[in-house]
Design a protein around this nucleic acid. Structure first.
Length: 790
DNA sequence: GATGCTTTAGAGTCT
DNA sequence: CTAAAGCATC
């Protein structure tokens, strides 16, 4: 059995590549994950590469997990063949388990597969104490990882307290963004000051300098530091650089188009050991293998730069033409979508100017037309989408809710969708938005654990010092903080000093002493108790759980359930990581994304942003809110480069669909629950080939155009049941009713009226109705609350 | 120091 | 409309 079996020609060339550089330009659905996985299996199983010498970067933790599972299976299959001469599936369950366990122990456990952040956080756990900072800052291996809200807390404190700047002019959020941006470009405060001259630049640089100092004082790193610090460490410390460069002989990067400068620097340092890539030719038994698609670059807001991908051939490759090159392979055959869907995707992306020349070739049949629906507002849109999903579900026995996805530009759009889905009793899951680990109760308990690992973590200490309430108020905290600052100690050192507490705290002293005792007691368990037990202990011994139980509200009950879920998460972590330490669990919690936890087992419609949908596929995709200013976003309307990124995002969304694609837009949208805003159809709709689309393609930049049907023909269509009353909606179709011009009807809100026009054809039509005392109203007869009148 | 009320600002995408 | 922040009162 070979790892090259079942691959097409281009895939085989990619997988079979051994040493040296290789760029795989892989269009959507062209089997790039397969190529990556098979290549790793091939390196290990065929070329005998030591698993510990591999570094593979994936875009999500979930992708990393799936890749490991896939590898385990591939290698176990190979082992079954060589050991027993028969396929894995034919062996007894016990033999299969044994083989897989052996592969896990000898290979999978040794692999460094993960996101940039997870991998380099891991590297820092080894070597961060060897880092010499230009400003003399230091960190230890017990460092905390701060998420966006922790980081924001710190920035806010610095801007308002330390610098005394006006929070109106220096919004903490914006300052934080500027700092993050600088870090992503690889700039330290001095460089930021050079790049952004002027008074404001100076002040932001100053905030950045203090923010760095504050992080170090907390022995904490933010997300950006997890990449920036390793770059600086590897650049400045030759011994460390030599070790990692020597260790990782084969570096693989997925989604290379979404790499930023810092990540690129990391790859370069590991691959060339610090030499300029153009000068590096000592490949020996070493390779760099990157996979990406410039058309799917959608993360420029966090400094991703797809010109890095486009520059690969000049950096590492042979610089030969596309026809002659030996360092690039293009995967252009799409195995995912119907020809119609691909035709739409290709036509859309052709409107972009900055691209690598590449077409997606269809390998599947034509499929159904794409449907474009215009709706009155976001509620009507949600109803239309749900209606469409119900019709499909009823019509196709093999199609399940889990095969359907609703994609949108912004998280806030999920709400209208959710309401409709609830109304119709359809199971769904929202991916993204509020992360599990961002919930208050989860962050509280994790803050206790972070404090146990890293007593310098004052942000975490302040979070839980009075949670649950111990009678420690603002005044006391201020007094203790001042004292700590003057002494140059972390706050914990003061809190943990019984005498200091008694002298400083007055009547809050009791609570503080209790707290210190609690932390000390928990701290004694940290070495030998597994993370799940520590989570449980924190919940119980801190009184957190007791308080939730006393409260007894539905909300408290919900929080209690979430905490139980946290225990489960810790158990799962221990299962997946045998020597799982508390530090490791905390890191995985900090770096987990909501998409990582989405399980594919449950049969539910998936709701998520277009960004979160990257890398996924669904038989049915509904792409909603195609309106100027929403998608493309209003921030991109004036900026051609930003508009191209929005178009790529749309391209990503379209290419998620395997069988059916539904696009919708509303003519009015409510913002902040308040006023209604008229909306103009998205320019992207007008860029789709009309022959692939059913329904009307609105011309962008103006009101939508409707083709009026000849009224003497095609004037009768099926009518579906109107809005349901109960959640358990009727499955069966109501007896079909045909609408025609002149028909009289009753509308729940507008009263009696008669139909003046019919628009569209086939399944999807709209009717224009004249009600008494108002202008013509265009309705979707399948959704509007209408009843026929005799 | 805690609690409850009123006001205000706010949502673009994510590790 | 919602979350956070500000303010008044116990």
């Amino acid at each position: 059995m070979s790892f090259l079996a079942g691959l097409n020609d281009a895939q085989r060339r990619a997988v079979d590549h051994h040493n040296g550089p290789m760029l795989v330009v892989a269009g959507a659905g062209s089997g790039k994950t397969r190529a990556l996985t098979h290549r790793i299996a091939h390196l290990i199983g065929h070329h005998g590469v030591d698993p510990a010498q591999l570094l593979a970067v994936t875009f999500t933790n979930k992708a990393a997990r799936e890749m490991k599972e896939r590898l385990e299976l591939l290698l176990a299959q190979k082992l079954a063949q060589s050991q027993f001469g028969q396929p894995l599936g034919t062996l007894s369950a016990q033999q299969q388990r044994q083989l897989r366990s052996r592969i896990y122990q000898e290979v999978i456990k040794e692999l460094w597969i993960g996101t940039f952040h997870a991998l380099f956080a891991r590297l820092l756990r080894f070597d961060i104490d060897k880092y010499r900072d230009p400003d003399g800052l230091t960190w230890t291996r017990q460092f905390s990882i701060y998420d966006e809200s922790d980081a924001q807390t710190l920035v806010k404190e610095i801007v308002t307290q330390e610098l005394g700047l006006d929070p109106k002019r220096f919004e903490p959020k914006k300052v934080r963004w500027a700092i993050s941006n600088a870090k992503n470009q690889g700039w330290l405060p001095e460089q930021l000051e050079q790049e952004q001259p002027g008074q404001r630049g100076k002040q932001v640089a100053d905030a950045y300098r203090r923010y760095r100092r504050a992080l170090a004082a907390n022995n904490a790193l933010d997300f950006d530091d997890l990449l920036l610090l390793p770059v600086q460490l590897l650049q400045s410390n030759e011994q460390v650089r030599r070790y990692w460069h020597g260790r990782f002989r084969h570096v693989l990067v997925d989604e290379y188009q979404d790499t930023n400068r810092t990540q690129y620097d990391l790859i370069k340092l590991l691959v060339t050991g610090g030499a300029e890539p153009e000068q590096f030719d000592d490949w020996g038994d070493r390779s760099v293998f990157v996979v990406g698609d410039a058309d799917q670059s959608i993360y420029s807001f966090r400094a991703a730069d797809f010109t890095i991908l486009m520059g690969f051939q000049d950096d590492f490759g042979d610089r030969a033409s596309d026809e002659a090159t030996r360092t690039m392979v293009k995967l252009e055959e799409n195995y995912r979508s119907t020809a119609t869907i691909l035709g739409a995707a290709n036509a859309l992306i052709a409107h972009n100017t900055e691209r690598i020349d590449k077409v997606l070739r269809a390998t599947r049949g034509e499929g159904e037309p794409i449907t474009v629906t215009r709706c009155d507002d976001e509620i009507a849109e949600a109803e239309a989408v749900v209606h469409c999903l119900r019709m499909l579900e009823a019509a196709n026995p093999e199609l399940r809710w889990g095969g359907m996805a609703v994609l949108y530009r912004t998280n806030a759009q999920s709400r209208a969708m959710e309401e409709s889905l609830v109304r119709w009793g359809i199971p769904y899951i929202v991916v993204g938005g509020l992360r599990f680990y961002d919930r208050r109760e989860i962050k509280d308990v994790l803050a206790y654990l972070r404090l146990l690992v890293n007593p310098a973590d004052t942000v975490s200490l302040l979070r839980v010092l009075n949670v649950p309430r111990r009678g420690i108020g603002k005044t006391t905290v201020q007094r203790l903080t001042d004292a700590a600052a003057q002494l140059g100690l972390p706050l914990w050192e003061v809190v943990n000093d019984a005498e200091a507490v008694r002298s400083l705290a007055g009547r809050s002293a009791k609570g503080l002493l209790q707290f210190a005792e609690l932390i000390a007691d928990l701290g004694r368990r940290i070495q030998d108790a597994p993370p799940s037990e520590l989570v449980q202990r924190v919940m119980e011994q801190s009184g957190y759980l007791a308080e939730l139980i006393t409260e007894g509200t539905d909300e408290a009950e919900e929080r209690r359930r979430n905490l139980q879920e946290l225990v489960n998460a810790a158990l799962q972590y221990q299962e997946e990581n045998e020597e799982g330490s508390l530090e490791g669990f905390l890191a995985s919690a900090a770096l987990a994304s909501d998409a990582d936890s989405k399980d594919t087992e449950q049969d539910r419609v998936t709701l998520m942003t277009l960004h979160a949908s990257k890398g996924l596929e669904f038989p049915v995709v509904c792409l909603v809110g195609l309106e100027q200013g929403l998608f493309p976003s209003y921030r991109s309307l004036e900026d051609p480069a930003a508009l191209e990124e929005e178009r790529r995002l749309c391209y990503v969304g379209i290419t998620r669909a395997k069988e059916r694609l539904f696009l919708s837009h509303a003519s009015e949208r409510r913002l902040w629950g308040g006023m209604r805003e008229p909306a103009v159809p998205s320019v992207f709709l007008s860029e789709l080939p009309p022959e692939l689309v059913q329904g009307d393609i609105p011309r962008s930049g103006g009101a939508s155009l409707r083709r009026e049907q000849r009224l003497d023909r095609l004037t009768r269509v099926d009518r579906e049941e109107s809005l349901p009353v109960a959640a358990n909606a009727v499955r069966r179709r109501a007896p079909s009713k045909l609408w025609a011009v002149g028909d009289r009807l009753h509308h729940a809100n507008f009263g009696d009226g008669h139909i003046t026009h019919l628009f569209g054809s086939g399944e999807k039509i709209s009717i224009a109705v004249k009600f008494e005392g108002m202008g013509p109203k265009i309705l979707d007869p399948r959704l509007a609350p209408i009843e026929p009148l005799p």
